[in-house]
Amino acid sequence: MEILKEEPLPPEVPTLVLPNTEDVLALGDRLDGVELIILDFPKFTDGRAYSQARLLRERLGYTGELRASGAVFIDQIPFLLRCGFDSFASAQKGFSEALDKARTLFSVVYQPTGDGRATANELRLQRRAAVAA
């Protein structure tokens, strides 16, 4: 298994490994001091961890490393990135090259998420405001 991240954390970092059935909103102080959270994709078609990731990032303000593990494949990367994952454990061949490509695969996004990308709507409004000014 290949773990991809620019700066891999030392193995002793405080880590939380969560099944995708875990209610992340009920973690309470289990989150304290945690620097790595590993979320699981038992099957790549099971998308519960996307919601967990967004709640951790956007609701609970978690800023540590968020790793996708399990059935994690190339074609999920754009979605994973947008939901706040920044680390990936994937056994798929070519995953690492695909990761770089995936960052620029879609120049347009429609949904506001915690990744901070400006949505098509926001860009439209900015453009209209610029024209009006």
């Binding site: 790549f44 078609t45 099971d46 998308g47 996307y50 979605f79 947008r82 996004v109 429609y110 709507n121």
Partner: peptide, 13 residues
């Protein structure tokens, strides 16, 4: 339509 298109959280419902 726009909001749901390639929604990152809801593409594996």
């Amino acid at each position: 339509r726009q909001w749901s298109t390639l929604h990152p959280e809801f593409s594996f419902l």
